[in-house]
Amino acid sequence: MSVQPSTEFHPRWYRAPVSTYWWMGSWRYSLFILRELTSVAVAWSVVVTLLLLRSLLKGPDAYAHFTHRMQAPWMLALNIIAFCFLLLHTITWFNLAPRAMPVRVGGKRVPEFLVAAPNYVLWVVASAAIAWFVLRKS
C-alpha cells in the first residue's frame, strides 16, 4: 500500500526544496554517502580478483602481465584508495550489524560491542588464514 501524502498541495504552506547536494549538508550525511560508496570498492576488488583468475587460466605469461599491471602507479593508487574504503565498509558493517540483529541472553540484550567483537576476531582469523594459504611455500 502506498501512503498518499495528505499535504501534497496547500497554497499557504511553505515546502523547502531538497537540494541535489543534500549529502554535503552535514559531515554525517557525507559519511553516509562514503559508506554507501564503499560498495564500489567492493565491486572493484571483485574485478581485480576476476582479472587474477583470468590470468591464471591463460597461463604464466598472462600472470606476469597481471602482476606487472598491478604495479602501475595509477593502479596502485586506485587499490590503496579502494583498500581504505574496504576498511570503512568492514568497520561500519560490523558496528551496525548488532543493531539489525539484537542478541538476547537470559532476556537481556547483549551490549552491541560484545556482539561486534567476535566479528572482528573472525575477520582477523579469516584474513590470516587466507594470507597463509596464498603465501606458504608449496
Binding site: M1, V3, T7, H10, W13, Y14, A16, V18
Partner: peptide
C-alpha cells in the same frame, strides 16, 4: 523542523505524519 511543510514561522504541518502513523 526540516522536510515538513511550514504553516507559520516555526510551526510545521503534521497531518501527513499523522496519516503515516495511522497507516
Amino acid at each position: 523542523l526540516r522536510y515538513f511543510p511550514v504553516i507559520r514561522d516555526l510551526v510545521t504541518a503534521l497531518s501527513d505524519f499523522l496519516v503515516k502513523l495511522q497507516s
